[in-house]
């Protein structure tokens, strides 16, 4: 699965993109976040303020309940501030 991080999530994780093999049993965005927090202190810090983390699955906004598979592109970012 392809993971993307933007803005301060990218800075905290330490890179903007990574490929991971989705562990068996992880089927939702919320479960993915819990698993990712254990990957590094940077990941843990990036997801520490969960209320400020937004997610897109395959370029569509997603929620913690959104179902994911190993073929998805999942992006994490703060609330948007364009315009």
């Amino acid at each position: 699965m392809k993971l993307l991080y933007f803005a301060w999530l990218r800075e905290r994780v330490g890179h903007g993109e990574e490929s991971v093999a989705l562990p068996v049993g992880i089927t939702t965005v919320a479960e993915l976040i819990t698993w990712l927090r254990g990957r590094s202190p940077g990941h843990d810090m990036a997801f520490a303020h969960g209320r400020l983390v937004r997610c897109a699955v395959n370029e569509d906004f997603a929620t913690p309940d959104t179902v994911i598979t190993d073929r998805d592109e999942v992006a994490f970012f703060p609330p948007v501030t364009g315009g």
Partner: peptide, 10 residues
Amino acid sequence: LKTRAPFWKK
């Protein structure tokens, strides 16, 4: 656009 388009300002 300000609430739905994925842009971030620093």
